[in-house]
Each structure stands twice: as structure tokens, then as C-alpha cells.
Design a protein around this nucleic acid. Structure first.
Length: 483
RNA sequence: GCCCCCAUCGUCUAGAGGCCUAGGACGCCACCCUUUCAAGGUGGAGAUCACCGGUUCGAAUCCGGUUGGGGGCGCCA
């Protein structure tokens, strides 16, 4: 797996990492992580940290590579950061230059841009025109005195490249259609297509599993591999994750950062399960799998060829499934970062059984437990007198009912069972349906028409605060405030 | 423009010639349960398997073409 720290861990990169992980674990191989940070201008330590942290969060572990951001490498073929391997790339570039498989190109970006624009305008394939292929020494001297620095271009042999893709089977390209591409920039920085091939060889990579967007880059890599005399790895190109409009999933149209999902309260187990099924299925009707189970079932050859739309509804459903499957104590621990600090450990433990079946994301706890953390005045601000009234009931009628409810509850033991018994008895003697009777209580205490189970909520809030909120509601009702 | 890849319900998918009058899940709708909302249960709508040819006794499954979609063609990765 070779992420580039030019942005936070992307959904697509996470899924590619996952498939690599599952494949490696399934076949008992060695999983290597390499940081592709040759683009110094865009790579940051912060993004590297985000990528490694979130990979850890998902439970994806690797055998070789930097284990933590800024940490030491593990493995015999390091360093595993490309920025630390520049001398190796320079040596290989020299070899190619020596053999004539590569040549210096003195064209400036501006000149290349002009050519490319012209090609596009005349509906031609945008490719290098080979201008620097047959330069004389005088030409080169001239360019040098102009202050130009040459880039290194690979002379792509015009031949048909065939390879057997793990997922797509036989694939064939005509490299005669390709232009010579740059492998080392004028400033000496080697480029992706070049370094990836060198590292794969030097790190003993046997299987390259990556996104389908690299399928048409593969013939370039194979040409380079042959020119360098390397062993050819096996390639597997997995389908892309798509925006709802079926284009490649992008930041512009979808939420792509794993961190964002993490911060919104998605569970890593749900994320992994969801991602694994975006492009693969075990061929049965089972759908809930842990990472380990996935690793034992996963077959790279079963991966689909077509892209898969990222369906947030399905992720939400899976997240709910995983939340409900968590033991209460475990859920409480995971909820801690998402509930206000004002909510005590005891209250949190008590609230878990009440909210467990009502959550899609961990962040839902903030909403569900707000009435426990906020002061009375804030909670009172969440509703109006009109909200209090059950359908078809007047303010006066509701005031009478709420007063009766308040008295009944005040006279009961402060336990869910006793409160419910008292509440139901009061509702019956008042002649109201339980649902109508409980509505003003619910709103007065929790501030909202939708809440966790009422009597458990009352117990969690406590007797005095609960009765206080009921009294406050009664006052507002009696003062005739119409809102 | 050129090259490559792909194509089963809205979405994720099962399906590797007869088991398919195409199965499951999400979402949607209805009902049940129910103190709200969920969760759960039951049922339902939803796919002429992109289209057209061909092979075959028989095709969603094999072959060809068409159409549609996607990806690539950077001194980004």
C-alpha cells in the first residue's frame, strides 16, 4: 500500500488499503506500507499522521513500513518513505540515461503547455512530441547557457504490453501510442511512475493491488520494469468508489476523509465492513463480518470489475447494527468523547441502554443526552407552550393534566417502574390516552417531543430537577403565554 | 481526439448455460408492537438481467456489435 501524504486518508485509499490487507492476511503474505512523498511541495507530516492514525483506527496493520507518523521503520528494505530514497532513484535514472533508455529534455513547462493546447485544439492525443530526442551537443549547450535545466524523459518502446490482471484478466495496451514521459523533474525530483517501479523491485513487492485509475498507467510501469531489468510483479486493479453520479469519488461531491466519518461517530468496524462490501461479496447472504472474518473469506479474484457508488444510507444502517451489538460498557466508553463533560460517568452508563437502539452515529448521543447536560433555562428554550399540547387539547386542559401528572410522579418512588405505574394510573383516572398524557411531561423534562424512554429519562435527570422542570412548564401554561 | 475498463431492482449485491416466473440487503410504502422516536416483526412496490444479433434443445450467464458510463493520456500521485 502506497499512500501519498498530500491529503487526509481518503475513503478510496482506505478501501484499497483494506483490500491489500485482506489479501495479504488471507494468503499469509507480508503487507508493506510505503509513504509516497516525492511531491515535497504537497506532502506534509500532518497528512502522514492522519493517514497512519486512521489506518490504525480501522484496524489495518502492516508488517513493513513506518509504524507511526514520524516513527521508525520496521522491515529490511527501508527506508519506507520515498523522500529518504532519493539516492537510489538517482542511480537508476543514471543507468537509464547511460543505456539510452532515457534522455534529457530541455523543454520548459510553458513550451510543453503550448504544444499540449495545440494538440487538444486539433483533437489530437496530448503527448510529448519528441522534440529533445535528437538534440546536438550544440543545442544542449545553448539550452544550458540559457539557464535551462533538463528533465529526464523515458523513451517508451513502441511495443504491445500484455499483462494478466488479478481482477480483470488479460489486458493489452499499445505503448506505441504513448508519448515519452518525464521520470525526473528538472529540479532533480523523481516522479511517481519511476519511483514506484524502483521501490517495488527493491522492496520485493510481488503483488500490486491498487485502484482502477492506475490500470492505464500499468503499461508505463511495465515498460520501465523491462528497461531496468526488474522482475514484474502481479497487478490487480480494483474498481473505483463512485459519487452518486457515478464519477470517481471526489472531495467536491462527497465526504471523502476517513477522519470526518470518525468524527461523526462511525465505528471502525462498521466502516471496514461497509468498505469491504463495496466491490466484493462472499457469495452468500451473510453481510456482517469482522475484519478477521473478512480476511479469512476474502478472495482477490472475487473482486468486482465495476465501480460501486458510496451509499451513505447503507453505512448508517451498518453503523446502527454495530452500535447495537456493542456491550453497554463498551458503548459508554466509545460515547465519552461525544457527550458533554457535564454528563457524569454514572449518568452516561445509565443513559446507554436508553439510547442504544436510537443511535445511527455516536454523535447522536449529543442530541439524545442534551437534556441531562443543559441547565433548565436552556432546555426550556427548546419548546413553546404550543409544543406541549397534545393534538386536540387546549392549554387549559393540558395544564390540568400536567398538574395531575406532576402530583402523581411526585408521590411515587423515583424508579422507572414506579414512575410508569403512577403515570399510567394518573392518565387513566384523568381519562387521557397515555401517549397524550405523557407528551407534556416529556417535553417539559427533555425539552423535545422525541426523547429516550420517558421514565428512564426522569430517573437519570433526578427527582428534584425533573419536578422543577414540570413546575416551570406549569407556570408557563398558567401564565397563558401563547407561543 | 486516442487508448483502456465496465454494464443484474434507486443503491450495494447473489448469480460462473437449465435450480431464475432473477434471491438477499439498504432505502421506500403498509401493517403489527409501542409513552415519543427508534429497534424488532410481517407484508408490499421495485430489474423486459443496457440494447441488437449470434452460439445452444435451452443464456442474466458464452461470442460479436451498438449504446451508455467510467478511467487514463501532467516536470501530480
Amino acid at each position: 500500500m502506497a499512500p501519498s501524504p498530500t491529503g487526509p486518508l481518503h475513503i478510496g485509499t482506505a478501501r484499497t488499503s483494506l483490500y491489500n490487507y485482506l489479501f495479504a492476511r488471507h494468503v499469509g503474505g507480508t503487507y508493506v506500507l510505503r509513504i509516497e512523498d516525492t511531491d515535497l511541495a504537497r506532502s506534509t507530516a500532518e497528512f502522514e499522521r492522519d493517514i497512519l492514525d486512521n489506518l490504525h483506527w480501522l484496524g489495518i496493520t502492516w508488517d513493513e513500513g513506518p509504524q507511526h507518523a514520524g516513527g521508525d521503520d520496521i522491515g529490511p528494505f527501508g527506508p519506507y518513505r520515498q523522500s529518504l530514497r532519493m539516492d537510489r532513484y538517482a542511480r537508476e535514472a543514471d543507468r537509464l540515461l547511460q543505456s539510452g533508455a532515457a534522455y534529457h529534455c530541455w523543454c520548459t513547462p510553458e513550451e510543453l503547455d503550448v504544444v499540449r493546447k495545440a494538440q487538444e485544439a486539433s483533437k489530437q492525443a496530448p503527448r510529448y512530441n519528441g522534440r529533445c530526442l535528437n538534440l546536438t551537443d550544440a543545442d544542449r549547450e545553448q539550452f544550458a547557457t540559457e539557464g535551462r535545466r533538463p528533465a529526464v524523459r523515458f523513451r517508451v518502446p513502441a511495443e504491445t504490453i500484455r499483462f494478466d490482471d488479478l481482477i480483470r484478466g488479460e489486458v493489452e495496451f499499445d505503448n506505441g501510442l504513448l508519448g515519452d514521459f518525464v521520470i525526473v523533474r528538472a529540479d532533480g525530483v523523481p516522479l511517481y511512475h519511476f519511483v514506484v517501479v524502483i521501490d517495488d523491485e527493491q522492496m520485493g513487492i510481488s503483488h500490486v493491488i491498487r485502484g482502477e485509475d492506475h490500470l492505464s498507467n500499468t503499461p508505463k510501469h511495465i515498460a520501465l520494469i523491462r528497461a531496468l531489468g526488474y522482475a514484474e510483479p502481479v497487478f490487480g486493479h480494483i474498481p473505483l468508489i463512485l459519487n452518486p453520479d457515478r464519477s470517481k469519488m471526489s472531495k467536491r461531491k462527497s465526504q471523502t476523509a476517513i477522519t470526518a466519518y470518525r468524527e461523526q461517530g462511525y465505528l471502525p468496524e462498521a466502516m471496514v465492513n461497509f468498505l469491504a462490501f463495496l466491490g466484493w461479496s462472499p457469495g452468500t447472504e451473510e453481510e456482517i463480518f469482522s475484519l478477521d472474518e473478512l480476511a479469512t473469506r476474502f478472495e482477490i479474484g472475487e473482486v468486482h470489475k465495476a465501480g460501486a457508488v458510496f451509499d451513505q444510507d447503507r453505512l448508517d444502517y451498518l453503523n446502527g447494527v454495530y452500535i447495537r451489538a456493542l456491550p453497554d460498557a463498551e458503548l459508554a466508553a466509545r460515547l465519552r468523547p461525544f457527550v458533554p463533560a457535564a454528563v457524569s460517568e454514572e449518568t452516561l452508563a445509565g443513559v446507554v441502554p436508553l439510547v442504544k437502539e436510537r443511535m445511527v452515529r455516536l454523535t447522536d448521543a449529543t442530541e439524545l443526552t442534551g437534556f441531562l447536560a443543559e441547565p433548565d433555562a436552556v432546555v426550556a428554550g427548546w419548546w413553546t407552550v404550543a409544543d406541549l399540547l397534545p393534538k386536540g387539547k387546549t392549554a387549559d386542559e393540558t395544564g390540568l393534566a400536567l398538574a395531575a401528572a406532576r402530583d402523581a410522579l411526585a408521590g411515587a418512588d423515583w424508579s422507572p417502574e414506579a414512575l410508569e405505574a403512577a403515570g399510567r394510573a394518573a392518565a387513566e383516572s384523568h381519562g387521557w390516552k397515555a401517549g397524550d398524557f405523557f407528551r407534556p411531561i416529556r417535553i417539559a423534562v427533555t425539552g423535545k417531543p422525541v426523547s429516550p424512554p420517558l421514565f428512564g429519562s426522569l430517573v437519570l435527570l433526578g427527582r428534584e430537577p425533573s419536578l422543577g422542570r414540570l413546575d416551570g412548564a406549569l407556570d408557563r401554561l398558567r401564565s397563558g403565554a401563547v407561543a
